[in-house]
Simulated assay, not measured.
Amino acid sequence: MKKLTFVLAAGALALSACGEEEAEVAAEAGAEEVQEITLGATAGPYSDMLNKAIVPQLEEQGYEVEVVEFSDYIQPNIALDNGDLDANLFQHTVYLEGFEEQHDMDLTALITVPTAPMGIYSNVYDSIEAIEDGATIAIPNDPTNAARAFLVLQDEGLIKLDPEADTLTVSEKDIIENPKNLEFKPIEAAQLPRAVEGTDLSAVPGNYALASDMDLLDALALENMPDEYRNVVAVTAENEDGELAADLVEIVESDEFEEVIDAEFEGFGKPAWMTE
């Protein structure tokens, strides 16, 4: 009986030692716990940019990433502000700053990324030079994108704008020369791809062009957009100095990121910092 008691006690000690060893291993694994994050983007090129150019590098750094796609430009910032997202990618700086002010939020643009430019498209003309007197061009009916359209037309020599006008808010009233007597037809930006069929010309923002399976390189002219109109990776102001923010900036500035952009996002305009 004494011998049996000794054997049982020895077994208990062995099991206890084994249990402690497993606990130590589990504790060590816990110390290297994966950080789960959620990123948001509108469906299309910018969710693709997250998935192809940013998420793989985040995962290499130990993050577990979920990407949430949105179908509008309102919810991604609401989700970021209330903590459902850790960062988003879908908007340019002008939109971000206006949204912050309108909705009393404190968000931060971390870094500008390559962005699909607005283009002048036509099924009637095959070049800017071929545009005839009195041609009709569909333009966005919202002030921000309309200003972009007028700047493209000026860059192509089709109109001249008042040099005193603010380039971020120029409108039809700021046109001082219109040598081809272009007629402007303001419509909602999302409808501009369809307008290629019903008007002589259409100024289509890049994201809507891509969503309609249009090739950016088919445009008669592409926008040389100011960086204020290029999309940004955004976080809340309280997280702009955090580890994730630093990692996102490092990834976007990496050679690997640019290689994916060059291979997968042909026609996207690069921000100034990538071309200096």
Results as ranks from 00 to 15, higher is better:
L4M: 11
L8N: 04
A12D: 04
A12K: 04
V25F: 11
G30F: 11
A31L: 13
V34F: 15
V34N: 12
I37W: 05
A41G: 15
T42K: 15
G44D: 12
S47K: 14
S47W: 13
D48N: 15
I54Y: 08
Q57Y: 15
L58K: 09
E66K: 13
V67Y: 01
E69Y: 08
F70S: 06
D72M: 04
N77A: 10
I78W: 02
D84L: 00
D86Q: 06
Q91K: 04
Q91V: 09
V94A: 13
V94H: 09
Y95P: 02
E97Y: 07
G98A: 14
F99M: 03
H103G: 02
D104N: 08
D104K: 10
D106K: 04
A109L: 00
L110V: 02
L110C: 00
P117K: 02
S122W: 00
S122Y: 00
Y125I: 01
E129R: 06
D133A: 06
G134F: 05
G134C: 07
G134Y: 08
A135C: 03
A135N: 05
T136D: 01
A138I: 00
D142F: 03
T144N: 06
N145D: 15
R148L: 11
A165K: 07
T169F: 05
T169K: 09
S171D: 11
S171K: 02
E177K: 14
N178Y: 07
A189H: 04
E197L: 06
E197V: 00
T199L: 06
P205D: 05
A211N: 12
D213I: 07
M214Y: 09
L216E: 13
D218P: 09
A219F: 07
D227S: 15
E228N: 15
N231H: 08
N231C: 13
V233G: 05
A234Y: 12
V235K: 02
N239C: 03
N239G: 00
D241Q: 13
E243I: 07
D247P: 04
V249F: 03
V249P: 01
V252P: 06
E256H: 06
V260G: 13
I261F: 07
A263Y: 05
G267P: 05
G269W: 14
G269N: 15
K270D: 07
T275K: 13
E276G: 15
